[in-house]
Amino acid sequence: MIHTKTYYQIEVDTGNDRLLLEGPVTSEDLASLDFHEDLTAFRPASQQHKALIEIADLPEGRVLIARLEQMVIGYVTFLHPDPLERWSEIKMDELIELGAIEVIPAYRGASVGKNLLRLSMMDDAMEDYIIITTEYYWHWDLKGTGLNVWEYRKIMEKMMSAGGLQYYATDDPEISSHPANCLMARIGKRVKPESIQKFDQLRFMNRFMY
């Protein structure tokens, strides 16, 4: 199931600047832009820039960005789950993962992440997908924000809810390893009941192991 990726853009006034939020962007567009050196939550900025270019080239891959002129200061990605993760154990073309969302520290608190998620869901094609995100506390910038895990999780839940994602229970061992970790998902309006059933099987695989 490969859908046309409909491009959207919005402007966000942060009080100091006007940011352009746009996407899904092409790999060529991404390659032509500068990538802020503070986008290091997952890997060094230059490597993350390269990774986003590769994601944008995937048939299902979507990268939406926030930029100040030619400088990318935030992004969100969507792609099929990693083949090594539980979420790929049942082959589902209609299951995509919100793989990463990041905004540089200077623009946190300006609703950039929320607006990137809202922009992502403007595309009607998203109604054909189950979108998941796995939130692990060890990915969170607790040191930089000074928040504890519960305060940070509350912020993450609020941001994800802007994109229509909500909490779903699971027995996934990695998520279950800490009570602050969680699975969130958005089930599109046109997702078939049998696909929802497969998703439920993925969420609770351990019950079938006995």
Rank of each mutant, 00 (worst) to 15 (best):
T134Y: 00
M1P: 07
Y136E: 13
L142N: 09
K114D: 11
D172A: 12
L117V: 09
V72M: 01
Y152M: 15
G15R: 04
Y152P: 00
F78K: 01
V112H: 02
P179N: 12
A169Q: 12
D29I: 12
T40C: 11
P81A: 09
K189N: 13
N206V: 06
L117N: 06
S32R: 13
L64T: 08
N206H: 12
A56D: 08
N206P: 00
I131E: 04
G74L: 07
H178C: 09
T6R: 11
V25N: 05
P179S: 13
Y75N: 07
M126E: 05
Q70P: 00
I187M: 03
P59I: 12
P179M: 03
L116S: 06
K154H: 11
S176F: 01
L39Q: 09
M209H: 11
D200C: 03
Q47E: 15
E127C: 02
S46K: 13
F35H: 10
K192E: 15
K154R: 14
P59M: 09
G61L: 04
I101Q: 02
V103F: 02
K158S: 15
A180F: 08
I73L: 13
D123Y: 11
I55M: 03
A56P: 04
A185Q: 08
F78E: 06
E157I: 10
L79T: 14
Q48Y: 14
R207L: 11
D172W: 04
N148K: 08
L147N: 07
P59R: 07
I131L: 14
E69K: 13
D38K: 14
E69W: 04
L19Q: 04
Q48F: 14
V112Y: 02
T4H: 07
T133G: 15
K114R: 15
M159A: 12
S161Q: 14
P81I: 12
V63F: 01
L84R: 13
G188L: 07
D34V: 01
Q47M: 10
H36V: 09
P193M: 10
R207G: 00
M209G: 00
T134R: 06
T170F: 06
M92S: 04
L64E: 07
M205F: 09
R67A: 02
I10C: 00
R18Q: 11
K192F: 07
L20S: 02
R86V: 14
R190A: 11
G61Q: 07
A100K: 11
D128V: 01
Q70S: 14
F199H: 08
Y129R: 05
L58P: 00
I55N: 03
H36L: 06
L64P: 02
C182V: 15
K114P: 00
R62C: 05
H36F: 05
